[in-house]
Simulated assay, not measured.
Amino acid sequence: MSATLIYCYDPMCSWCWGFKPTWQALQKALEPIIESGDLYINTMLGGLAVDSDAPMPPQMQTLLQGTWERIASQLGTKFNFDFWTQCQPRRSTYPACRACLVARDHNLESDMMSAIQEAYYLNAQNPSDVETLSHCAEHIGLNPMQFKKAMQHTKEQGLLEKEVNSARSLGLNSFPSLAVLKGDKLVHIPLDYEDITSMLNDIKAVI
């Protein structure tokens, strides 16, 4: 019986950005098992913050800047702090999550996630804005007009909300999260942001 490794993330989650190199290394280490057909990888969107046009409160801006500083110090992750002075931050990650859902239909979810993260964390652009997301879509080869229509359809159909509810039902309430599903057994995998060894061993033990 094959197993599924579920990676739950939000493209605007700063800890997901910090985890990215380790996640890529873990996927690389799992390639032989994936190629054998014993393991599949399935992504799920976390939906960290719902749609909002309200400016982010100053205290939350300060809190998130502190989080960026902690991740940079702990993991060596790069952040462009110009974002906080050049953009109007909003506590809204649902648009960016929907962009990843749209890209998934074109087998470009990973590319979209990377484009959003780089726009946000390196280029001080705001992924809460549809225009930023449209530029990300164009960057990975999608038609901007068709992308915007697909974004609206995804919103009208509540597709992200359905995925978020599915993630919550599996206990994937923090981002990033990893869990292995085999049959009707779900095993959560503790994260190590700097070394894949323990995660790799835990995954192998389940499958």
Rank of each mutant, 00 (worst) to 15 (best):
S2E: 04
S2M: 11
I6M: 06
C8Q: 07
C8Y: 00
D10K: 00
S14R: 01
W17S: 00
W23V: 13
A25L: 08
A25R: 12
L26A: 13
Q27R: 04
Q27I: 06
A29V: 12
L30V: 06
E31C: 04
E31H: 09
P32C: 13
I34N: 04
I34T: 09
I34L: 05
G37K: 08
D38T: 07
I41H: 10
G47T: 11
D51I: 04
S52M: 14
D53Y: 00
P57K: 11
P58G: 05
Q59W: 09
M60C: 09
L63H: 12
Q65F: 03
G66N: 11
W68K: 08
E69C: 10
E69V: 12
E69L: 13
R70V: 03
I71C: 02
I71Q: 04
A72R: 00
S73Q: 11
Q74F: 11
K78H: 14
N80G: 07
F81L: 13
D82F: 02
W84T: 14
C87M: 12
Q88H: 04
P89W: 01
R90A: 07
R91C: 01
R91V: 10
R91Y: 05
P95L: 05
A96V: 06
A96S: 15
A99W: 00
C100R: 00
C100K: 02
L101A: 00
V102I: 05
A103K: 12
A103G: 14
H106K: 04
E109M: 15
S110R: 10
S110L: 12
D111A: 14
M112N: 08
M113V: 15
M113E: 02
I116C: 05
I116F: 06
E118N: 15
A119P: 08
Y121K: 08
L122S: 15
A124S: 15
A124E: 13
N126I: 02
S128Q: 13
V130D: 03
S134W: 01
C136E: 07
A137V: 14
A137D: 06
E138C: 03
I140F: 08
I140A: 09
K149W: 06
K149H: 14
K149R: 13
M151W: 00
Q152D: 12
K155W: 02
Q157E: 15
L160I: 00
E161C: 03
K162C: 07
K162L: 05
S166F: 10
A167Y: 03
A167W: 05
R168A: 11
S169K: 14
G171V: 13
S174E: 13
P176W: 01
L178V: 02
A179Q: 02
V180S: 12
L181A: 13
K182T: 03
K182M: 09
K182E: 12
G183T: 14
V187P: 08
I189S: 09
P190N: 11
P190S: 14
L191C: 08
L191P: 10
D192T: 04
Y193P: 04
Y193A: 14
E194L: 06
E194M: 10
T197V: 09
S198W: 07
D202H: 11
I203C: 02
K204V: 10
I207M: 04
I207S: 01
I207Q: 01
